[in-house]
């Protein structure tokens, strides 16, 4: 019998709450925000299906303080989610080689964010005109 007796440390069940993983945990939680906003949109669509009264009630709810606060929170979540999503993007694709050199991940992220902003802008302009 040798002296060897490796000691196995148990991972804390609350590891995700620790400082180290705060950024990751917030990113994952922001996904819940995206889902909630999806539900809000679906509810709006459903109100359209149910007729003008239901739609008016939905629009009315949108202007209540609760709804405004909720939307601000959801907007923050969406922005965080979008940002982290684009930051993760270059990690999920093969290294992009242009002219014999790898394109920096930051460039890919910035390009993707730029593209998303352009699309959003086009949508907003389209909706306004």
């Amino acid at each position: 019998m040798s002296e060897r007796r490796p000691y196995v440390r148990r991972q804390s069940r609350l590891w995700w709450a620790s400082r180290t993983y705060r950024g990751y945990t917030l990113r994952e939680l922001s996904g819940v925000g995206v889902a909630v906003y999806g539900a809000v949109l679906l509810a709006g669509l459903d109100s359209v299906r149910r007729g003008p009264d239901a739609y008016a009630a939905f629009v009315g709810w949108l202007s209540t303080p609760v709804a405004i606060v909720l939307h601000l929170v959801l907007l923050a979540a969406m922005l965080l989610h979008g940002l982290t999503w684009f930051q993760t993007l270059p990690k999920t694709m093969p290294r992009l080689i242009v002219g014999g050199q790898a394109v920096p991940q930051k460039t890919i992220t910035n390009a993707a964010i730029g593209l998303a902003m352009l699309c959003s802008l086009a949508l907003v302009i389209g909706a306004l005109s």
Binding site: R95, I97, G100, Q101, A102
Partner: peptide, 8 residues
């Protein structure tokens, strides 16, 4: 192996 292939 070209430098570009290496960079991959």
């Amino acid at each position: 192996q070209t430098p570009a292939q290496m960079a991959a």
